[in-house]
């Protein structure tokens, strides 16, 4: 068990945002935190590496309660990529090198430079080394930010909506590379997501948040039409394409999901014509 969360509660100005959160993650797993907007996905992610301090509960990382670790030690175990990445007039190499901060004493060493070099090759972004990050596209910047968190050599990587601002190609490229590093380096990834199909394709386990707490937590088998409708309030149809489940939202026309059958028939009808 690389990360476990027990009875976590988080308050923002006396308003309960998260309550009674408990789950655990093993190495080599990708976990997707899912749920509607404003349910506290990002808040939960930030509680895991103490960017936010929970009111109650214990987060344990590699056997140690996170509250007992210094900020630098937390940074050596957990990497974090925020949803919005800041830019500036510095090169991609500089930006990734910053990820060595938790390991740097007075100054960088050859080892730091070699690790950053390897990360550029690993993420296949060698061409961005000497590019200024304020001239990069959203996808490039996201890769730089993930590479930066990766060179922290963390055991756990937290990603806040890593693909929400990206086009299809960038989404696939980024998540493929994340999958690679998870397999090769046996780290765990926890990411918040909106797109259920992307989550289904890349994640091993899923946390559905609803009403301040975990609605369900488990592997692909928990993703059912009823579950998604209960969490998001939208009727869906789950199909399968080459063994990968696909979630297709249906129309809300009748409000209670009764339109499901008609809509499906409708779609089939259109397809046939």
């Amino acid at each position: 068990m690389i990360l476990s969360v027990d009875e976590l509660q988080f308050l923002y100005r006396n308003t309960k945002i998260l309550d009674d959160i408990a789950f655990s993650i093993s190495e080599g797993e990708i976990v997707a935190i899912l749920g509607p907007n404003g349910v506290g996905k990002t808040t939960l992610l930030k509680c895991l590496n103490r960017i936010l301090v929970p009111k109650e509960g214990v987060v344990t990382v590699c056997g140690d309660p996170i509250a007992s670790l210094g900020l630098m030690e937390v940074a050596r175990r957990i990497g974090y990529v925020p949803q919005r990445v800041e830019t500036g007039r510095l090169t991609g190499f500089d930006a990734v090198l910053l990820g060595r901060r938790p390991h740097i004493g007075w100054d960088i060493t050859e080892k730091d430079l070699r690790i950053v070099d390897a990360a550029f090759k690993k993420f296949m972004i060698d061409h961005l080394r000497l590019h200024s990050i304020d001239e990069m596209s959203g996808g490039e910047l996201q890769l730089i930010a993930i590479a930066r968190a990766f060179v922290q050599e963390p055991k756990i990587l937290l990603l806040d909506e890593p693909t929400s601002a990206l086009d299809l190609k960038n989404q696939v490229e980024i998540l493929d590379r994340i999958r690679n590093i998870v397999t090769d380096h046996r780290i765990a990834v926890v990411m918040t997501m909106h797109d259920l199909n992307t989550a289904l394709r890349y994640a091993d386990r899923f946390i559905f948040l609803k009403d301040q707490s975990i609605h369900t937590y488990g592997d692909r088998s928990i993703i059912t039409e009823n579950e998604i409708e209960a969490v998001y309030g939208v009727p869906v149809q789950i199909g399968e394409l080459w063994g990968v489940p696909c979630v297709i939202p249906l129309c809300l026309c009748n409000g209670n999901g009764n339109g499901k059958e008609e809509e499906r028939d409708d779609m089939i009808h259109k397809k046939e014509n």
Partner: peptide, 18 residues
């Protein structure tokens, strides 16, 4: 290095141990 981290955004800086 801490200033570099801070330039990368408060949350990134905090995640880098600053």
């Amino acid at each position: 290095w801490n200033y570099n981290a801070m330039d990368a955004g408060d949350e990134t800086a905090r995640a880098l141990g600053v």
